[in-house]
């Protein structure tokens, strides 16, 4: 179900004269959440910026066909998730031969990232998260950092609630093992 504010924005988006203004409002409202969702997946700020921009350009192109049977935010998250995963897969295919190298590269990115403000533990947490498979990492990020409900995660990922719970459980176990706890 659409939030009332989103419903108004979508109506305005469908009118040529208010289309651009409505999209700007949608952008203002959701840009940060979409960016952070992507950033946690791709790690590097520049990459996150590119993927976020692509996501919103796709949102612009797809809003006319948005069926309104889910929340606007959920729909955008789904696009952002697909964009982030596609980006990571392309990066793997283009630059690296195996996951270990990508993992190492992303961990290195965090180490040298001028926009990473965390302490050693937070650095270690990110490195631990990078050891997870992509989709498990996605689930872990949504639950651990955003405390998102499994039902919403299910809508975004198209995975059953039970499978998501199991995935999160496994992810936490792996990360805890990295820290030597659990």
């Amino acid at each position: 179900m659409l939030e009332p504010e989103d419903e108004i924005l979508l109506k305005e988006f469908k009118v040529e004269s208010t289309r651009s203004r409505a999209f700007e409002q949608i952008l203002k409202k959701y840009q940060r959440r979409v960016y952070w969702h992507i950033r946690k997946m791709v790690i590097d700020h520049d990459d996150a910026d590119d993927v976020t921009q692509n996501t919103f350009i796709k949102v612009w192109g797809g809003l006319d066909n948005f069926r309104e049977d889910s929340k606007l935010f959920t729909w955008m998250y789904r696009i952002a998730t697909n964009e982030a995963l596609t980006f990571i897969n392309k990066k793997k295919a283009n630059l690296y031969t195996d996951w270990d190298t990508v993992e190492y590269s992303l961990a290195e990115t965090i180490t040298h990232d001028p926009y990473f403000n965390g302490d050693n533990i937070q650095m270690k947490l990110q490195q631990a998260i990078l050891t997870l498979p992509d989709k498990q990492r996605l689930v872990f990020n949504m639950k651990y950092f955003e405390n998102m409900k499994y039902e919403q995660m299910s809508e975004i990922t198209g995975t059953s609630v039970g499978a998501l719970k199991a995935s999160y459980h496994h992810a936490v176990k792996k990360v805890e093992k990295f820290f030597g706890i659990g």
């Binding site: 700020h45 990473f116 403000n117 302490d119 650095m123 820290f179």
Partner: peptide, 11 residues
């Protein structure tokens, strides 16, 4: 142990 604050920043 590690908290769940995201330590990434932006320009």
């Amino acid at each position: 142990l590690a908290g769940n604050e995201l330590a990434f920043g932006v320009p």
